[in-house]
Amino acid sequence: GEPHQVNPSHGGQVTHRPGNQLSLCSLLEMGFSETQAKEMHEGATKSRGKHVPSVMTALLLLGLNPSSILKIMQKCPEVYSLKGADLQQRIDHLRKMGLVEGSLQRMISHYPKIMLLPVKRVNMVSRLLREKCLFTIHQVTEILRDSPEVLEEDLAQLEYKFQYAYFRMGVRQPEMVKAKLFRLPLSELRCRHCFLERRGLYQTPDKKGQTLILNPALKDVLCVSEETYLTQVAMATAEEFHVFRKLMAREQEEKGREDEYSSDE
């Protein structure tokens, strides 16, 4: 039996509170249109953020305009509940990681969830990328910029994906960055790679890095639509790939179960 929310059309009545509450007026002052302000206010009230004004300030300081801020809040209402100081610290930290103006804003607009991740998490992932996967600092920045999703991934899974590309496919770090490797789930990477491999169009290089055939570039395998991948690289039909995907899922599931059994012993 929680008290019910205020009807948004009467929202104006509860805005004139001092302190950390957000008022419609202040939103209008920040440059939001009336409808935008109403929507923001409604969202803020719903998520009961206590420090919304300081969050708004931090976002405005980033140079984001009201309509992109509104979009961010719609995509990720959890941002309302942040503390402005925490948010500012996270943004500063991302800058320190080498994300320059422009790409920082683009990244936050495209992937607002990044604002929810503690500095510690970002550090852990970037350390893993540098120390275990031997990416350069500059490459790590590029990875974060192109695929911020990487920050949310399970660390063991992340390392495994790197190792898959490195050892199984014989791809080096610069090519991984170019191919935006970390955008794709491991299952999709494996599907596209194994499909090519079984068709005889991809080979794991030997110890000297040699193959009998010319492997396609990783970016041509990963950074293209499925249709392009099928017609330009795999030279296969969508039906074949569709069945292959199902078979791979089952193979992996059964392999996982096997591994479980053997590690139980």
Binding site: F195, R198, R199, G200, L201, M235, A236, E240, F244, L247
Partner: peptide, 9 residues
């Protein structure tokens, strides 16, 4: 290629 991937699946 289509035969190969089928035989290996």
């Amino acid at each position: 290629p289509s035969i190969r991937v089928a035989m290996l699946s």
